[in-house]
Amino acid sequence: MSENLQNIKANKTIGTNELIINIIHWIRYILSKWKVLALFAIIGLTGGVYYYNTHKGNYTAEYSFIVSGGNGPSGGYSGIASQLGLDVGGTSGSLFDENNIITFFRSRSILDKVLYSNYKNSDKLIIDRYIEINGIKDKWSKNNISAIKFNAEESKRTIQEDSVINGIYKIIVKSNLFVDKPDRKSDIIYARFIGNDQVFCKTFMDELMNQVSLFYKETKSNNDLRNVEILQRQVDSVKNTLNASIRGVAVAIDNTPNANPSQQVVRVESQRRVVDAETNKALLAELTKNLQMTKMAMQRQPILLQIVDYPILPLEFTRTGLIKTVAIGVIVFLIIGLVVVVLTRVYTQVKHLFIIDKV
């Protein structure tokens, strides 16, 4: 038993010693390739300096806002309205809900409207300015599409134009436009555009906020107008029914002019007509009140976004320092060089064993 324990300990010692020896051999081998690693470090240093000189930094235009709460009539109106097919916050409320507003800000339809808006009240479109400041047209010259002109009228756009817009849209949502809610306990949402031209960044964000507000107002107005039309029809219908009920009461009374007070059955018809009239009267009063409330809601034009903060020129400027940029470049390329050295050694050893086995 003791001999087995001694053998196990001896094997462990041998295994540990072999591991240490292998590690030492690897370290010596890597150090022996210091010239290769130094070459990769120089490449990283050069790349860091080049990146620093070619990337001038970015400006950030940021809005912070709170999504407004429910709009339109509430309370007892919502119960009746749902039975009448009215929208009391359904379509517009769900679309502009806090949980959906982040996705809505980055939607293709909204960004299309922004890109096809005039840039600072000029004849140039925002899409034209974006292409200009990012040097995209120089890349297009290779694809023979540098002469493309963007048309604000959707019916006159070509397939080639839509294809280009789709590509630019993907670049913007991936690299420039960011909308998020970092603090889940807070209601504040942040929307920012990051780019290398501060005037463009601010102009883009101003137009984006404007387009979202316009779309909301149009949607809300359409819903309110539809609600008014439905309520007006219901008011007219109930009013006609009420008039018919009042007439029915009079007819029932006239049919029994000298009714015997001890015979209640002859008064059933007139009492039923009275109940119908009272019910329609109450319903008409409620519908009329809700109709007036909806008309008032249309006049108020509620605000969707309560702005907390907005961008002011000069915008916040961010740029990675030269030392940090160079350090990152050197570290990255040293790691790449180390991987190349290790893989080369492993490949050589495997190739050598394969040759020996073959022999």
Results as ranks from 00 to 15, higher is better:
170 K>R: 14
52 Y>D: 08
205 M>K: 11
27 I>C: 11
322 L>Q: 05
285 A>V: 04
86 L>D: 05
235 V>K: 06
120 K>R: 07
230 I>F: 00
130 Y>F: 15
190 Y>K: 15
333 F>I: 00
29 Y>I: 04
123 D>W: 02
37 L>R: 06
358 K>S: 12
234 Q>A: 15
89 G>E: 04
296 M>A: 05
168 I>V: 09
330 V>I: 15
5 L>Q: 11
328 I>L: 05
310 Y>V: 06
349 Q>C: 01
175 S>F: 13
313 L>V: 10
290 N>T: 03
311 P>Q: 13
336 I>G: 11
176 N>C: 02
343 L>W: 02
285 A>P: 00
246 I>K: 11
167 G>Y: 14
320 T>R: 10
105 F>H: 10
233 R>K: 15
145 I>K: 00
170 K>E: 07
331 I>M: 09
357 D>W: 08
168 I>A: 14
176 N>G: 14
196 N>T: 15
90 G>D: 07
281 K>N: 06
127 I>P: 10
195 G>I: 12
94 S>Y: 03
354 F>W: 07
31 L>N: 11
178 F>L: 14
70 G>M: 04
332 V>A: 14
45 L>M: 13
198 Q>T: 04
82 S>W: 03
278 E>C: 05
131 I>P: 06
269 E>C: 03
94 S>N: 07
112 D>P: 11
335 I>K: 00
142 K>Q: 12
279 T>L: 12
52 Y>H: 11
85 G>K: 01
1 M>Q: 14
152 A>C: 04
181 K>C: 01
175 S>P: 04
355 I>N: 13
257 P>S: 12
280 N>W: 10
178 F>H: 15
87 D>L: 03
339 V>E: 09
3 E>N: 12
170 K>L: 14
304 L>C: 10
114 V>G: 04
12 K>E: 06
263 Q>C: 01
280 N>P: 09
286 E>F: 03
351 K>A: 07
90 G>S: 07
306 Q>Y: 07
30 I>C: 00
289 K>M: 06
314 P>E: 12
257 P>D: 11
260 N>R: 14
296 M>I: 09
75 G>I: 05
218 E>Y: 11
239 K>A: 15
333 F>Y: 11
330 V>F: 03
191 A>Y: 08
252 A>T: 08
252 A>C: 02
55 H>F: 14
150 F>M: 08
255 N>F: 02
182 P>A: 10
129 R>F: 07
295 K>Y: 00
282 A>T: 13
64 S>G: 01
295 K>V: 00
288 T>W: 01
192 R>T: 04
235 V>Y: 03
353 L>G: 03
136 I>K: 15
143 N>Y: 11
231 L>R: 09
91 T>Y: 04
265 V>N: 10
138 D>R: 14
13 T>A: 10
254 D>G: 13
192 R>P: 03
140 W>K: 08
346 V>L: 12
284 L>F: 10
68 S>I: 03
135 G>S: 13
240 N>I: 08
151 N>D: 13
70 G>F: 06
103 T>M: 07
